[in-house]
Design a protein around this nucleic acid. Structure first.
Lengths: 150, 150
DNA sequence: TACATTTGAATGTATATACATTTAATTCAT
DNA sequence: ATGAATTAAATGTATATACATTCAAATGTA
């Protein structure tokens, strides 16, 4: 695949910034497509997987829908509906928050934990394979991305 | 915003590769959200804008739907339906390909060109602002992304 | 030529994204 | 204490993504 110019057959870009935006969008698509293949057999989407990870990170403490939303990778997605889907698969459960009845406490179930633990090993292994960089380069790329967002 | 750990409130990652995958997904969301605000007033989605750019790149030569698909940033999206939407807005036109009636030639209209030229200046300017890096860093980041995909 | 295979595009369906709007509960201000 | 403002979550709607399937046209082969 190599250089972005070849990948999308565009000869040149206005400047390195505009090339970078295109390069990031394209690389994202590459990663998401690669990851999808992993999640597909388990009937899970990447964002559903991410929600399960957020919930497990709480170590059993309940998490409200809005707190999940804040921590999602995609800030504009709809945590309420994602939780709904996960609940239908019995991977999470919802409870009314006693201190504030507007809020809903969400918890990962035993079934959800099992699926997550099983999947995570594969995902971690696959991520190392998708990314064709040395450890040093990966660290450097992380720093540049953090700086990019300011 | 700064470091990804703070942004999504995750304390640590398995290794730099797995942190990088999350960082890329998150940075993509940052960029897409920023860009959306630009496209919104013109009733255009980022991918529709991208299709218009691909068509203009042909300098008047017709482009088939599958050729558009190949050059899109998101390889899994549906060029046929995107072209449909653009046609309804009269930004592109479709013609049956004389040499192969299975194929459809797509061309950008005068109206499409005008919108694109007007928008492009704003987009280029905005992209430089979204990316809080020096030119050198942007070049470096481009190289790392190209290498990442192998 | 006849028939199977392949190809380009369209269509069907489920999920997700991006917002706007709604509803109920809580908090704030007077 | 009452009504206004705010907040949390759910819901509505349009578009996009991810695939599978369909359909017609073109190609390949016996």
């Amino acid at each position: 695949m190599g250089k972005i110019e070849e990948a999308i057959q565009q000869k040149e870009f206005k400047d390195p910034y505009n090339k970078l935006v295109v390069n990031l969008l394209y690389t994202n698509s590459y990663l998401v497509t690669s990851q999808n293949a992993l999640f597909k057999p388990h009937d899970l989407s990447p964002e559903q997987y991410n929600v399960l990870r957020i919930l497990r990170g709480q170590n059993g403490a309940p998490t409200t829908v809005s707190s999940i939303q804040d921590r999602m990778l995609n800030k504009m997605s709809n945590a309420s509906r994602l939780v709904d889907k996960l609940k239908m698969k019995e991977l999470v459960k919802r409870e009314e928050c006693p201190s504030d009845r507007r809020q809903v406490d969400v918890l990962i179930t035993e079934k959800g934990l099992e699926l997550l633990n099983q999947l995570e090993i594969q995902v971690e292994e696959a991520n190392r394979n998708f990314v064709k960089l040395t450890k040093e380069e990966a660290l450097q790329l992380n720093d540049l991305l953090d700086k990019l967002r300011g």
